[in-house]
Amino acid sequence: MDFLSALNISASGLAAERERVDLATSNLANAETTRGPDGQPYRRMDPVLQATPFESALDSGVSAGAQPMGVKVLGVAVDQTEGHKVYSPGHPDADANGFVTLPNVNPVNEVVNLISAQNAYEANAAAIETLKTMAQQAISIGK
């Protein structure tokens, strides 16, 4: 375990938070999209995050439970809750009774998600900064 692998842990955190921001912005942009690629109303998406041991237990010589963990985006979960229906008979996607099913996106949730992801991103960036300072100090030993 050296400086660079620790940087990679932070990088995995940055990537995970960026994925959260990507999906939250996609959800926000499609808050009113009534027709997706499958013809159905857009459904909001969330990343599934998983902690992954950063190096194999063989490499580090310690048990898998005790070593530093990076974070991995395991996949994207599609929120299956139903969107609310609005009566709008003139809408091209209205059903037989004149109701349009809107996406299950709540903009308030998405913005909260965005802010939380931004804070976590900054925390990871700060961790990188600390590590860089440490590496610099190690390099300058004996100068």
Binding site: E17, R20, L49, A51, M69, A120, A123, N124, A127
Partner: peptide, 8 residues
């Protein structure tokens, strides 16, 4: 660092 990366 890994604690920060796994904050979510």
């Amino acid at each position: 660092t890994s604690n920060v990366a796994n904050a979510d």
